[in-house]
Design a protein around this nucleic acid. Structure first.
Lengths: 155, 155
DNA sequence: CCTAAACCCGACTTATTTACTCGGATTTAG
DNA sequence: CTAAATCCGAGTAAATAAGTCGGGTTTAGG
């Protein structure tokens, strides 16, 4: 229940990939798609929304691509998911940012308490995480696996 | 984004209606449907699941109907919604109660942190509310609006 | 100038899910 | 015996999701 769609998943993974390469110039979408094993043509739709929302910038033409508009620490997961999936809304009558649109039974409908709680706790979870939290800046160029001790991939 | 379906909404409202009349014998589904203005034939599907899950009991035949299997305070919103909408699962790889089913990139996929956080905060929100919390036992038979001072409905 | 690599955009398609409805069988109080 | 109810599975229309496709525009480099 209460599932995010592929838009959110793919889009977030794309943004994480861009975060990993932040500061290295524009990344072509085909590269991102290859890294994450996602359909490039579909990512195009998603990145368009993110660009229009101001979270990524693009450069057209040869050697073009996409790049985060701000450092990863300044973009939250909530920012990304709201662009791709719309406002947090576990139920129509409990949509983020909409005070007006409520059904007429709302005044005495105690179920709305549930949806509002869910909405707020999801918002809290999403807004407290930035791309930087998800993409630890542990040696992106010089893989120094000694100090971290983390195996980044095995099998 | 991340929306409950009508199953969850209708089902919860139905359970709240049953909670309001708990202890008054079995309630026919047509009554519940009328109270909540919901399609009775659809509720039938939903209440079937709730009965098989042990949260309501039924009596067949004339003067039959449905009734909560336990007092409202002993049924959580999480109980009800899990029966109707399945386990909490903001993403396939972060489904409640499933430790095995994870995609092979999960080991190094930091996005899963997001889905797990969302899952756990939704679970916390749903499991901390019982039907009794939603259906205040304020004078169900004798509407004594004086002491409460609450306006239950004003345009 | 020319070309290839990329972004840009909207329309189309297909599969799945949702929100129901329908028909009919069974049970039971009066 | 009948009417009111639970039970059950199948069917169906509409919406949404998840992509695909075709073509246009921009730009670096030769």
């Amino acid at each position: 229940m209460i599932r995010f769609s592929a838009r959110g998943e793919y889009g977030l993974r794309m943004m994480m990939d861009l975060a990993r390469r932040y500061g290295q110039g524009p990344q072509p979408l085909t590269e991102v798609a290859r890294h994450e094993d996602l359909p490039a043509a579909y990512l195009e739709q998603l990145v368009g929304k993110l660009r229009r929302a101001g979270f990524v910038v693009s450069r057209q033409g040869a050697h073009g691509g996409y790049e985060l508009a701000r450092p990863p620490a300044e973009i939250t997961v909530g920012d990304v998911l709201r662009v791709l999936e719309g406002p947090i809304s576990p139920m129509v009558c409990a949509t983020e940012g909409e005070t007006d649109l409520l059904c007429e039974r709302q005044v005495f409908c105690s179920a709305s308490l549930v949806w509002e709680r869910v909405r707020d706790s999801v918002a809290q979870a999403l807004d407290s995480l930035t791309l930087a939290d998800l993409v630890p800046p542990k040696a992106p160029m010089a893989p120094r696996t000694k100090t971290t001790g983390r195996t980044t991939a095995q099998a």
